[in-house]
Simulated assay, not measured.
Amino acid sequence: MEMKKRINLELRNRAPEEVTELVLDNCLCVNGEIEGLNDTFKELEFLSMANVELSSLARLPSLNKLRKLELSDNIISGGLEVLAEKCPNLTYLNLSGNKIKDLSTVEALQNLKNLKSLDLFNCEITNLEDYRESIFELLQQITYLDGFDQEDNEAPDSEEEDDEDGDDDEDEEEEEAGPPEGYEEEEEEEDEEEDEDEAGSELGEGEEEVGLSYLMKEEIQDEEDDDDYVEEGEEEEEEEEGLRGEKRKRDAEDDGEEEDD
């Protein structure tokens, strides 16, 4: 597939100014030149054109926001001065597997002041004596060459490198905004104490209700017992009066019989 068609396919009905990443790997360059890219891709931050038989960067459009450029496995041998003119904010450049042979070709990258990582792996220039020392001396702005710094420390992944500053800021914000140490534990303890107090108060209320109802029942029972006692007393008095009346009656009858005699 030709580069123009591939670009139209990658757009997916989006306008060029809406695109921030564009991958055109393994498509076909006509005459080894870039086709289909223009200045309307002004928001582009990542562009990959690996293995597209690219030999010239002369038709690279102005991409001021471009930070990462992948150009590996092409046939580029020079003309790198275009990069500083068209992509002044590049931080990462991959030229591995191209036809770069000498330091004078790489010297043009000195004008990429923001360049931090450069990859020349599998280029003929890597066969030069003191290759790494020479490149680091020539391009003093770079930190990583072919994935390693001057002390042979490996470069972080590109995604980590992208998010490094942002993540630090986010972590600091989270630490500042987050609760102090032990805050959650104290809060949990307070919640537990509140639950216990509520349970205790509910239990106390329940006990009060039970106590009140019990006292009321006792009072009612006492009143009933008093009523029963009064009734029994009245009955006994009535029985005693009845007995006294019968005794008086019998005495009167006895007196009457004595008078008759």
Rank of each mutant, 00 (worst) to 15 (best):
E173P: 14
M49R: 02
F41L: 00
N111H: 13
D162F: 07
S104I: 09
L22D: 03
D260K: 03
K217L: 15
V82L: 02
C87K: 05
E170L: 12
N114R: 13
I220Y: 07
Y183N: 06
E159T: 08
A15F: 08
L11N: 08
E81N: 13
D227N: 05
S96H: 12
L71Q: 11
E176M: 04
G245C: 01
N13W: 07
E190F: 15
E2G: 11
L139W: 05
D171I: 15
E196L: 06
K101E: 11
G242F: 01
V23F: 15
Q140A: 07
E241V: 09
D149W: 05
D102I: 02
Q140F: 04
K42P: 00
I75A: 12
R250N: 15
D119R: 12
E192A: 04
E184T: 10
L69G: 02
G32Y: 04
E232W: 07
E239S: 13
G245L: 04
E154N: 07
G242S: 07
E181K: 14
E172W: 15
E81Q: 10
S117P: 00
Y144T: 08
E175K: 11
E218H: 05
N98K: 04
E207R: 10
K86D: 01
I100L: 08
R67V: 15
K65M: 01
S117V: 12
E237M: 13
K247W: 07
R59N: 14
G200L: 10
P61C: 11
T105A: 13
E196T: 06
G79V: 00
D168K: 10
L212D: 08
K42Y: 00
L112K: 12
M1R: 01
R244Y: 03
K217D: 11
Y131S: 09
S158H: 11
L145P: 00
L109E: 02
L93D: 02
I76M: 09
D130S: 14
L115D: 02
M216V: 05
L203Q: 09
E184D: 08
D102G: 06
D119H: 10
G242H: 06
N98E: 05
E107Y: 01
E53F: 01
N114Y: 10
E258Y: 06
E239T: 13
R67M: 07
T20S: 09
G182E: 13
E174W: 13
K5F: 11
L112E: 10
N26H: 15
